[in-house]
Nucleic acid binder design. Sequence first.
DNA 1: TTTCAACCTTGACACTATGTCAAGGTCAAG
DNA 2: CTTGACCTTGACATAGTGTCAAGGTTGAAA
Lengths: 135, 135
Amino acid sequence: MSMINIGEAARQSGVSAKMLRHYEQIGLIEPATRSDSGYRLYTPAAISTLIFIRHARDLGFSTAQISDLLHLRNDPQRASSEVKSVAEDHLQELHEQQQRLTQMISMLQEMISQCPGGNNPDCAILKKIDSMEAS
Amino acid sequence: MSMINIGEAARQSGVSAKMLRHYEQIGLIEPATRSDSGYRLYTPAAISTLIFIRHARDLGFSTAQISDLLHLRNDPQRASSEVKSVAEDHLQELHEQQQRLTQMISMLQEMISQCPGGNNPDCAILKKIDSMEAS
DNA sequence: TTTCAACCTTGACACTATGTCAAGGTCAAG
DNA sequence: CTTGACCTTGACATAGTGTCAAGGTTGAAA
């Protein structure tokens, strides 16, 4: 009943066929059952899982974190605090990335604002990079 | 006169010995001269270049962009507008990253705020990941 | 002078997440 | 039966960095 091939699974889930094979290989997902000729076959439940994975990936979760989330998703005995903890750890990482990014942006913006551009070789940006101190 | 080995060059520049070899191999920097026994020897000018590279890396420039910047840095005929253009392209990328990050953070924050935590298996975060639509 | 530690060399393999390409098997339609 | 679209596995690539192994070098102490 309604088992689909890898290409269709990729289309429906938004995860590439390549990544479906990869996720299977690293054990993130259960190996798909195979047709007589060896083609992978995906059930609707498997597709739901794949969509979950893609969404988690869109939120920037690492493969390891997604693995944790999948286990929790499959576990009816889970404590929602465990899920929350994974999410909070990730949020923390995202905040740190954001801070680093904001730092880079402000430094770069200042450098750019001090460079008049044009044909003059004298360039504030190059000088600043030479002399800057990392935050 | 004051040629130093790779370990000392790494210490002075903040670029690891491994990366010094790597940058040489990919052609980002000129091959270092060698001692009789084959050790790489770095001049003070080379160290300045390495410090420049580290700073550029701290600003998030890619290796390819750093390569461009190094060429411009070495070219007395450069137009500062060229440097500015590289910097502006990078700034643009950083802004895009920042937007993606901000999106992720706000989605994640909303999910987290809707999950009470505790031992209850009922988890808003998992549900939201299942049903979310990527921005 | 021998020895030992600390350094250097190259090369290989690892990571993350994804793409691409090649050589070959399969399926469905004409 | 051929053709095209699909599937298979495996290998290699990306970017930036780390680690490990096997071996040569250097300088200082014994």
